[in-house]
């Protein structure tokens, strides 16, 4: 059995919202293995974002354990930041690209921020290669504000791949795109496990997107439900 990149064991997440306690996740056990993809679906408020926040080490669980490559991660922010930097990358619905920078510079953002350790020329070459991989090599020097939504999301994907993440989390990656562009981005995302060996987790409302994944995890009221939850216990 392959050791999952990220494994959640009996994870619960509660927080205080307007004076009442919200149980965002409860007793979630799931793992994401290298070279596989998973889609997380569920209604608004079902805990999808909370699940990826915990799996992506952006939040410490209130209860349970997050295990990266077989090693439990402590709740200490600094430790989680260090592990997150070398393990996880995220893609967002609204791209979050700096409009003042070119595609290449946006792609190099992890290098600018000291997360990736390369020389400048090596970082630039790597950015160019990634932009080529996502199909927009010719736009490397183009500023973001002069790009379409699909092109921007490709830049965001290239940026996410810059640090060679083991786990790539995409939160509604096609939410702001038209149908054709969304299909292209979907195909690109689900090709990444094979191309890069990363584990890709896509959070989506769109079942069309979810069907492209190796497995679908459904969340209801903070719990994994249905047949897919059983599948997670036996990792692919």
């Amino acid at each position: 059995m392959t050791t999952p990149v990220v494994e959640l064991r009996e994870v619960a997440l509660t927080f205080n919202h307007g004076g009442r306690t919200v149980h965002a996740l409860s007793g979630v056990t799931v793992g994401f293995a290298s070279g596989t993809s998973a889609a997380i679906v569920g209604r608004s408020g079902s805990g999808k974002s909370s699940l990826v926040a915990v799996a992506g080490l952006m939040r410490a669980p209130s209860h349970g354990t997050v295990i990266i490559d077989g090693t439990p991660v402590t709740g200490h922010e600094r430790a989680r930041t260090a592990v997150r930097a070398r393990t996880v990358a995220m893609i967002f619905q609204s791209f979050h690209l700096d409009p003042r920078l070119t595609a290449q510079e946006n792609c190099m953002l992890p290098w600018f921020l000291g997360v990736a350790k390369h020389t400048r020329s090596k970082a630039a070459r790597r950015a160019d290669n990634l932009l080529e991989r996502v199909g927009i090599a010719q736009l490397a020097r183009r500023p973001i504000h002069a790009m379409s939504g699909g092109e921007r999301q490709r830049v965001a994907i290239a940026r996410a791949l810059f640090s060679e993440p083991r786990l790539l989390i995409a939160d509604e990656p096609t939410g702001n795109l038209d149908e054709d562009t969304a299909a292209n981005i979907r195909a690109l995302l689900f090709s990444l496990p094979t191309d890069t060996g990363a584990s890709v987790v896509v959070v989506t409302h769109d079942m069309e997107v979810a069907r492209g994944a190796d497995r679908i995890l459904r969340l209801e009221r903070g719990k994994l439900v249905g047949r897919d939850q059983l599948q997670t216990a036996v990792l692919p």
Partner: peptide
């Protein structure tokens, strides 16, 4: 704020955000 949030999501240390 999104930029600094993104930087932190990437694993950037708080010190680098302060430097920025």
């Amino acid at each position: 704020a999104w930029f600094y949030g993104l930087a932190r999501a990437m694993g950037t240390r708080s010190r680098s955000v302060v430097t920025l």
